[in-house]
Design a protein around this nucleic acid. Sequence first.
DNA 1: CTGTTAGCGCCTTCAA
DNA 2: TTGAAGGCGCTAACAG
Lengths: 354, 354
Amino acid sequence: MARPTLADVARAAGVSVSTASLAFSGAGPIAESTRERVLEAAKKLEYAGPNPLGRQLRSGRSGIVGVLLGGVLGRSFREPVAFQTLDGLVSTLAELGLGVLLLPASKDDLGPGEPGASTSLTATAAMDVAVLLWGANPADGDILALERREVPVINVEGPPIGGNPTVSINDRDGFAQLGAHLRELGHERVAAVTLPFDRSRTSGIADADRLASIRLEIVRRRLEGLREGGIEPSVVYEAAYSQVEQGVEAGKLLLSGPERPTAIVAQSDALAAGVVIAARELGLDVPGDVSVTGFDGIDLPWLGGDVLTTVDQPLGEKGTAIGRIVEGILAGTQPESVTIDVELRIGTTTAPPR
Amino acid sequence: MARPTLADVARAAGVSVSTASLAFSGAGPIAESTRERVLEAAKKLEYAGPNPLGRQLRSGRSGIVGVLLGGVLGRSFREPVAFQTLDGLVSTLAELGLGVLLLPASKDDLGPGEPGASTSLTATAAMDVAVLLWGANPADGDILALERREVPVINVEGPPIGGNPTVSINDRDGFAQLGAHLRELGHERVAAVTLPFDRSRTSGIADADRLASIRLEIVRRRLEGLREGGIEPSVVYEAAYSQVEQGVEAGKLLLSGPERPTAIVAQSDALAAGVVIAARELGLDVPGDVSVTGFDGIDLPWLGGDVLTTVDQPLGEKGTAIGRIVEGILAGTQPESVTIDVELRIGTTTAPPR
DNA sequence: CTGTTAGCGCCTTCAA
DNA sequence: TTGAAGGCGCTAACAG
């Protein structure tokens, strides 16, 4: 026999379908005895509970939260910050009975207003809310597709989308603190290693033109924070990804030229770790010859005894905050945007220049 | 006005609902002119395409593949192998129009046969197939829940579940090759650092009892492979997670005792990297004082110039293989289990003992 | 407390 | 090539 339905169970138990429904959902008054009878019939028929598809159509809710990682998924996974946030988000949502659907960013950004033209998951998969994790750009085709479908979109670390709330960290302030710290130590020739300006995945020293065309708010904001802290970077190196390897490349380039900076400010811990490794490979002492700072506060096991001077951002809390906003949206509330505070953590990789 | 439905569009275009359906799905003959008329009406009404919920109920398919990561999700994400496989899987499935739903393992394993008792996603979320990524145990409550729902379950690196195919790598052979390599170099006192035996997350040197109770096939198989290669480990250290930090702990313990091993075989690259770091911190030379081997072939940026002697497993290929099996199952085929070959890669961390 | 009724939005017969 | 009708499995009103 085909898979049993709620109707089969109801028939076997000698009750109506709606009563059987109540036995499973508990969303209404039902006599304990009837409930047991239904559950027993279900067990006999090997009925595994209400079919989610039926329930979803009826309720208009899928219980699914789509998560769009910036850039190619594979890379994103190698960026610790993204997946630690994802982790916090998954746990929070699981408690609400919501699942996280991974949405790979579609490569070709298709134009708007072409219903049916796209077959990407953002355009077709069932989801109640979407979350853009770090690196989203409001003009992307994926986002347009979501807006067209009227899926509420929560942007993390980016500008609000379609009037929906956002979740951010106070990274401007974090960088201001870093800048002030370096300033106090007496650094004046400071290089910056940034996250990618956009999805073009270029890397290298950014000239004035390139600097003027930064598309990701997060990058610009962090540079501005640094200035607020009193540090105007003498060189800005754009990394293609937030990964240790990219930091190594950046470090080698910045530290082997003339006019070597006395400090390097990286926009992520992964990049900073790479810079430290590069310095060591060049025979330079950290922080004696060069100070290095990171951002994020993730635990990096590969620096040996050194502790990176960095800014802690509470990643779990970030995930939780997103979860709560999702909850609010689904409940019909208009949740407020959230900004999470960060904290400077001075380690062993910064010291006065010599 | 509420969100328009296909019926609204059909009415606006002056056609029947079924015709409008054809205009979007293309699953039948339709005149180009009618199609355009429908699409135009859709655009006017801001209809964003067929509601997936209705489509899903009708077709009985959700287009969703549930992925169960072993253990707590958070940890899994820090284990590079799991998420690189996940990455390959996501891309492969995306091409098939399928989405990946992240399934956090439920903490409390509830007994079987309690429909409605569980509210975890494994028991309630819509999904066509489930994939167990690395570390699943067929007796887990989650798996029982899936079996009860008759969701086909593909186990990766584990025994088949309910007659469904599996995807594995030939890790036994990989370890046999590693063993033979060390053997040839002349190593005789070799310690092993393994993946966790189960989900209890204990760590430390395993005594005979503990060794007899290994629940995860993968761990046992890899130890057996080593023996096939002619190496009987003198000590076995069980790590609680496959992470660099755990490797550091293991390395410190194994290398600071008496009867120091001349080689350490780790069951993952992350663990091996930790061992290398520990050796360095203890002032030991790798591979002069101790040889270290890993497994997986992931790129570890933090070893500086050293290249780990390891076994490459093609992670992307693994994801692709899983994707193809999912495809087969959904097509009604009975796909075969797949075993993927691995390859020994000799680096700079192994040498004859001195 | 339980049963009846009426769809949720879509797609697939089948008939025209 | 298009239209009409039925039903996928479930739940929310409402009536009893």
